[in-house]
Write a protein that binds this DNA or RNA. Structure first.
Lengths: 329, 329
DNA sequence: TATTAGCACTTGAATAAAATAAGTGCTAGG
DNA sequence: CCTAGCACTTATTTTATTCAAGTGCTAATA
């Protein structure tokens, strides 16, 4: 366990370094703590031995290590309430009764991205939690049509398909069959049900049943299963740890394009606010992801704020708490 | 007009500089042209006076100016056919009969982005060219529902709306009213028709008609009107003119996020391949956009390749021609 | 008249050396 | 246990030096 003074030192260094990415030396701390710089140096050395601080070179000041940030977040950080002005901006969105929940969330996260200069993400629930509500087919011309899938949570997915020698009648019949028989099934089980419950039936009355079955099968199989909405991608470029390092930018941007990586943020079980620092983030050693799940009626999902490891943890966690509260009622 | 020799010099400089972003000096050209470097210098000086070449500093070699690229593209460039290997890769996609056209295009442009290290874009027709085909409403719970809009070109857009005290019956009636009366209308005229043709009618039999009307009105008004699909955003980072210049990266990425800017690429009338160099591109002085419209049956749109001004014009134009041909049949 | 050899001159890039600033570890004494 | 003091390290900044590439211009040449 850390002594009172060590805690103070670590907290100060983390917060100072977050404000400005410059290693923190003993001199400034000696003023804060009203003791000599030598004393501070001894303490810093101890904190380094504990793995909470690091040096950038032999004679540099100290910088928080990943474990240092972790300790700060878990033990030292004091939550910061949002300031009134920021709250006002968000309330304008939340008070707007016209908006559907997903739009409310998107807009408010866009605002948060602007306020903080961090990237924000909304993830919309997993496909095994989404049940098929209804499918609709709209014919476009002789051979192509659009299939629209709606889930019980209001997610919509669509795909155009091409069919030869299948009549509109046959398609309509099949659609109502699907709606009657397998609506209510989790999306990722639909393909299976199609095979065992629909295929045998349409085999009887549809000439090109193989083709028709295949088309629907593919539609559900390709169901991308996740809404991913990233806001403020370019905010990452404002952060000094990236703006000097093209390789890092490349890496981070590529990860932000990768839906699998983003979706993996949703995985982790619990409903509280979670903080993934550096290596824990799966994005980059210098990136932190802070996320929480939300649930409002039958809509649920995850919101996340992605920024540098040097993120303003106290502020962001406060914001996310505020967001969660407002979304959930 | 340029002399034979001047043309040769300009062509050589453009192509050399595209291969490697280093100013081209008179020495190498003297070898190519089999004349003295002094002669070349005189010619280069003349080309500079014509505004086709530039120097990066008083004693540097020459670099093509924007006008130089323009002249090259319009007069000197020899189209380059795609090589067999690249063609093969694309043919695998084009030969796949299963895919809907939009998927074929997306996949092939993804491949082109990988082959060239340029960013690619598909734009899906303007809203005034899209006619309303059909709308569908799927109720999600007591008060919310999803509205799905399908256009005659197979574009799908959806939006959830919230309604209080409106019965499913009333909504259904309104939907079939819309489908019967204004299907076939250009999307961006639907709002107006709603007001004059639908509103008066539903006023008679729907209690909360104001609310219902508003909901539909918003749905069409927010219709984002364009499919924009950007592939290989991060490829820009591979280009040396950007990878050393964060400000440029920021600018370019922000523009690539901006749908209005991307859509403006579609504007320009004509169906042929168009090249917008540097300032003409609306994205950045160092960016070139090469685009063409395509039309296949009732689906149409624009494909574009976005890269540095130092783009391999001959290769990209060749590819785009090949793409257009394949899409259109 | 068009070309070319020759040369002085300019500039950016690379390298090296020196000066500066910030900060550390350690020792010894209060 | 704390701290004053000092030798030592390292990154950063500044200045000077050299090097390579390339130009423009002049005068001679074909």
């Amino acid at each position: 366990m850390l002594t009172e003074r060590q805690s103070k030192i670590l907290k100060y260094i983390v917060e100072k370094y977050i404000k400005e990415p410059v290693p923190v030396g003993s001199k400034i701390l000696s003023k804060v703590l009203k003791c000599s710089s030598a004393t501070v140096r001894n303490e810093m050395s101890a904190l380094e031995d504990l793995g909470l601080l690091e040096k950038t070179h032999t004679s540099s000041g100290r910088v928080p290590s990943e474990a240092g940030y972790r300790f700060y977040v878990d033990n030292l950080m004091e939550l910061k309430k949002m300031n009134a002005e920021d709250m006002m901006r968000l309330q304008i969105v939340f008070k707007n009764q016209q908006l559907a929940l997903s739009d409310t969330i998107a807009q408010s996260l866009q605002i948060i991205s602007d306020m903080t200069n961090y990237t924000t993400v909304v993830l919309g629930g997993n496909s095994h939690e989404n049940l098929l509500k209804q499918i609709e087919v709209v014919p476009i011309d002789e051979e192509s049509m659009v299939v629209v899938i709606v889930t019980d949570k209001g997610h919509v997915e669509h795909k155009s398909i091409k069919l030869q020698d299948v009549s509109t009648e046959e398609v309509k019949k099949t659609v109502s069959l699907i709606n009657n028989l397998i609506s209510g099934t989790p999306i990722d089980e639909v393909s299976a049900k199609l095979e065992f419950e629909i295929k045998p039936i349409i085999g009887n009355y549809v000439k090109q049943h193989e083709q028709l079955y295949n088309a629907f099968y593919h539609v559900f199989n390709d169901y991308s299963s996740h809404d991913v909405n990233v806001m403020g991608r370019t905010k990452m470029l404002e952060q000094p740890e990236f703006s000097n390092n093209i390789e890092k930018i490349k890496n981070v941007f590529n990860k932000l394009e990768d839906k699998d990586i983003l979706n993996s943020i949703e995985e982790d079980g619990d409903n509280n606010i979670k903080v993934y620092i550096g290596g824990e983030s799966k994005i980059d050693d210098d990136v932190t992801v802070i996320k929480t799940r939300f649930k409002n009626g039958n809509e649920e999902g995850t919101i996340a704020i992605i920024g540098p490891k040097r993120m303003e943890y106290d502020r962001v966690v406060g914001m996310l708490e505020y967001m969660k509260e407002n979304i959930e009622r």
